[in-house]
Simulated assay, not measured.
Amino acid sequence: MQHPYRVMIVDDSAVIRGFLTRWLKDEESIEVVASASNGVYALREFERARPEVVVLDIEMPEMDGMTALPKLIEMDADVKVIMASTLTLRNANISMQAMAKGAADYIPKPESTREAKDKDNFQRELVEKIKALGATRRKKSGQAAPSSDGQVKRPTASAEPVKKSLYRNTTVTLRPNKAIGLPQALAIGSSTGGPQALFSVFEKLKGKISLPIFVTQHMPATFTAILAEHLTKIFGLPVAEGIDGEKVVGNRVYLAPGDWHMTVKKDGTDTVLSLNQNPPENFCRPAVDPMLRSLIDVYGSRVLTVILTGMGHDGLKGSELLSQAGGTLIAQDEASSVVWGMPGAVATAGLCNSVLPIQDIPAAIENAVMGRPL
């Protein structure tokens, strides 16, 4: 077995530090190498322990998380920082700013460590994030990861293989673009690293697209409201959490609210949003798959879908249906993804028309909308 991922916990609460350390000790592939009560001590411990992943609290005395973040990244540009905060509007806004300044991800602290459900969900999510981010760091540096994140479907034999500039030994199979008619809707799915990727895409798309845009980003409710505000400022058009029964129109972005699946349906001649709290899919609510299924039901092949950075494989089943319907699919490449889980799943399954670095995706979207080659 390879060396476990090295983790540092930074939180002003000794109780929280204790909980996190005990929970993570249960994982053979994770080792807590240091803990600190504020940013000042974190910087001192960082020099000694050299962690690969840091779980960083936002609110701390003497030096808070936002002050410590750039200093940690300056010490090690490849360190993966997970911001930890309680679910408040202020902390959600700070977490969004932190990700724009180099944090890899965020995690909301459980409201109660005594509630088994809260504890189990938080523990599972934290472990998954540490493993995914640690694996990404090691892969970029050519180191072996202590465990595999699972298998994904391999390319189909009928498609033409095209080698992309991803990581060593990575080959994806591209599907010819045979969409019938121009796209009538743009769907975007993302998770870990998604806010940063969304900021990049929407900044370059400003003023260049008028389709209705549907976005599912794995986030709790408080965070999706803040994400919508940030995207509105960047994009210049309304971006808001979807409302059940809302009529779908162009020049608008519909963001799946935290804890709700967002789908669309026909209501006479109109297309309207439909929100539900059906069971999580791929451990997620909102999830990308139900959004894609409903969009395909309404728009058929005229759905342009983009799968951005994220853990797991949410969006894979929906993308399989999209491929069968003849829609167009773009995935973010491995090199520019914080975690190549979701985009990697659809890319290596041979479902994509194009696999691109994040900076090239807006131009590809514009080309698809205009009927030009990707």
Rank of each mutant, 00 (worst) to 15 (best):
I180T: 14
N177F: 06
G181I: 06
R138I: 13
V162T: 05
T173Q: 04
V162A: 11
L166T: 09
G150I: 07
A144P: 00
Y167C: 08
V162L: 11
R137D: 02
K164M: 15
G142K: 02
P146L: 02
G181A: 06
K139V: 00
R154P: 00
K163A: 10
S141K: 15
A159K: 09
A179I: 11
K153W: 01
K178E: 14
A145T: 14
G142Y: 04
A157T: 01
Q143L: 11
V152C: 06
R137L: 06
L166C: 08
L174G: 06
D149E: 14
S147P: 00
S165G: 02
K139L: 12
A179Y: 00
R138L: 04
R137P: 01
K153H: 08
R138D: 04
L166D: 09
G142W: 03
R175E: 03
A159L: 15
G142C: 06
S141N: 12
S147C: 12
R175I: 02
V172F: 02
Y167L: 14
K164I: 15
V162D: 09
A159R: 10
V172A: 09
E160W: 03
R175F: 01
L174P: 07
G181C: 06
G150L: 10
V162K: 03
T171D: 07
P183Q: 08
P161H: 02
I180K: 15
Q151F: 13
E160D: 10
S165R: 07
S165M: 07
A179Q: 15
T156W: 02
N177A: 13
V152L: 02
R168K: 14
K163V: 05
K164W: 01
T173D: 00
T173H: 01
A145L: 03
T170Q: 15
S148E: 11
R168C: 05
T173M: 02
G150K: 08
K139D: 10
V172E: 02
L174A: 03
A157W: 02
Q151W: 10
K139N: 14
E160Q: 13
S147H: 08
Y167K: 07
A145C: 06
I180S: 15
A179G: 07
P161K: 03
V172Q: 01
V172Y: 00
P161F: 03
G181F: 08
S147T: 12
S148P: 05
S148H: 12
R168D: 13
P183L: 08
S148K: 11
S141P: 00
Y167V: 11
Q143Y: 09
T173Y: 01
N177Q: 09
A179V: 12
Q143S: 02
K140V: 04
A144T: 12
K153R: 14
G181Y: 04
P146M: 02
A145S: 15
V152T: 10
D149W: 04
N177S: 10
T171G: 02
N177G: 04
S165D: 13
P183I: 09
L174H: 07
Q151H: 07
A145Y: 06
